[in-house]
Amino acid sequence: MRGQEMLDAVGYVGEDLILKAETAHKEKKRIPLRRALVFAAAALLLLGAAAATAGVIRNRMNVRLDPDGVNEMGFNAENGYLVLSEEARQGLLAAREPDRPMCHMYFDTIAEWQAFFGLPYVGAPGLDPNEAVTAERNDPDKLINVLAPVVDTEDGPKFGLMVTTIPGGPEIAVPLSAECAAEGGVGIQAANHTETEQTVEEYTSPSGIPYVIVRIASEWGDRCGYDLYYGYGPAIYRGIGRHAIVLSQAETFVEELKAFADSLVVYMPE
């Protein structure tokens, strides 16, 4: 018997163990999360002070669509999508994984992120981007999502960007809600025509970000779970999804998503 045969044997453990391990996920330990939140809060205070001096807060209010479909940060809005600059688009395409319609990019500073993307950064400290990938990959959502986790690394926090693109299509854009643009609130994009979404609860996070948790149910009855959406200014930052094998499991996800949403922070352009 060799190690490889032992590995083969492990393949025959019970189905329940396989499924339990597949869906297992826990929030980061409280201490690192708190540390990250303290960092985020300190950063927000510093940014707030700087913003007040530099008049940036007024810019935040101006992150809106104008009647011609161009917002004051220079992005065009077409058919409900916020379209990236060609340079940014090419950058994302260059970073796209060869075998999957998505890409990850990480920036050392918020300034770099915003220079590339041009929107206020809404992040969740400590979120594991790979977990988010898993959630996205289980999602037949054909819209384009942006996830912006703050990734803790040995060299300090990195500001991440994960974009999923339309499978097979060249477009990369950020979903934009007209309602969101008008009211500064959050909007919901339908996930898929075969699925229904039911709003479970709407909140505003401690950092002032409106968000909504929706329950996803497939017409085919083969998918259940909850998705979190949050918005800022005109952009919808699609949050994370928790999708379950069985409905009873999904019922536990609401509190988990609320805890995640409560950890959201916003970083303003410098």
Partner: peptide, 9 residues
């Protein structure tokens, strides 16, 4: 392998 797998289980 299957029998061993059951033991591991």
């Amino acid at each position: 392998a299957q029998e061993l797998g059951r033991a591991i289980d």
